[in-house]
């Protein structure tokens, strides 16, 4: 805070520290273009999904704080981010009630049960999505094509399904580039992928906007750049090698990089400050593990997309990574055997 009077003091001259809420707010600003593009390409249905998941997260956080007689922590914006990220990983035609359930689970099971912000072992948004994926596997893999003519005037028929009822399957469904590759061996051009002219989850379409948001956050020193860089580099190199070995069986590296939720996951989810390692080397190992898992699941796994599981698994081992490569405390012996 600025002092009114002239103040002469010795160092350190701290004027204002960056608080959690500052960082979180900036993440929200960085995510907004992605969300807006999602609404632009998928229309009202996507807007409903995003609103439902954000509302569910904020409300759950508020009520759980009230319930445990704590001060409400919704003002730190972290619940908004969780909601936005969760909404961005869901298909645009996802029923609103399911998105709401996902938001409640994300906050309650992914964050609050561990003790709230700062104690979550996993990225809360991904916990919510993982439960949704296991609970409603059909709804979460029914995709809606982008850029429909009437997308701003109407919503998809499954959006407003009655709570606890099965959504009606839309006559018009699309296939994501990854499932098209997995099941029909069709490769979507990388330029379409980068610009987001494709079917997919609300937020995993426009890779360029996601990258821009990430660069903004890195420039403001609010994100560890090593995580997205190491993930993307690992995926690029590994899939590049595979593509060189057999270009028929394995997709080109650019396709791998820009398709599915990799960009969103690498930039916004893997970088969860609590669930990722602390040391620079640990962060690189963490990114490598995520990249490796993504390639393995996508190419040899039964599922077309594996970013979510890759990040959740890496979250689980990140404290162990920190333990393993703990830097030597200055002044102690170089190797302490048997301790």
């Amino acid at each position: 805070m600025l002092n009114r009077t002239l103040n002469i003091s010795t160092s350190p001259h701290i004027t204002k520290g960056i608080g959690t809420d500052d960082i979180m707010q900036n993440v929200v600003w960085a995510l907004l273009p992605v969300a807006i593009f999602a609404v632009y390409s998928f229309g009202m249905s996507a807007l409903m999904v995003l609103l439902a998941s954000v509302a569910a997260c904020v409300l759950t956080e508020h009520f759980l704080c009230k319930f445990s007689k704590k001060e409400s922590t919704i003002s730190d914006w972290s619940a908004v981010i969780t909601g936005l990220l969760l909404g961005l990983t869901l298909p645009p035609n996802f029923p609103v009630w399911m998105a709401f359930v996902g938001g409640v689970i994300a906050i309650a099971l992914g964050k609050f049960i561990f003790g709230g912000l700062g104690y979550n072992v996993f990225n809360p948004a991904l916990v919510g999505r993982a439960v949704l994926q296991a609970a409603f596997p059909v709804a979460i893999t029914t995709w809606y094509p982008a850029f429909l003519e009437n997308r701003f005037s109407t919503v998809s028929s499954s959006t407003f399904t009655m709570p606890f009822m099965e959504p009606t399957v839309d006559a018009i469904t699309g296939a994501t580039p990854l499932s098209a590759f997995k099941f029909d061996h069709v490769i979507t051009p990388a330029s379409d992928l980068a610009l987001g002219l494709i079917t997919g989850s609300t937020g995993e379409t426009c890779a360029l906007l996601i990258l821009l948001g990430g660069i903004y956050l890195i420039a403001r020193n609010m994100m560890n750049w090593r995580i997205p860089v190491s993930i993307l580099a690992t995926v690029y190199v590994l899939s590049g090698i595979l593509h060189l070995i057999d270009s028929q069986a394995y997709p080109p590296p650019l396709f791998m990089l820009f398709s599915g939720g990799l960009m969103l996951g690498a930039v916004y989810m893997a970088t969860d400050m609590v669930a990722s390692p602390i040391t620079p080397l640990g962060v690189v190992i963490y990114g490598f593990i995520i990249g490796l898992l993504v390639v393995v699941i996508r190419i040899w796994g039964g599922l077309p997309e594996g970013v979510m599981y890759a990040i959740l698994l890496a979250n689980a081992i990140s404290p162990h990574i920190d333990n393993l490569i703990q830097p030597r405390v200055y002044g102690t012996a170089k190797s302490v055997k048997g301790s």
Partner: peptide
């Protein structure tokens, strides 16, 4: 439940 009840497969 009514016929079009959405099962929670995860359960």
């Amino acid at each position: 439940f009514p016929e079009n009840f959405q099962e929670w497969i995860v359960m």
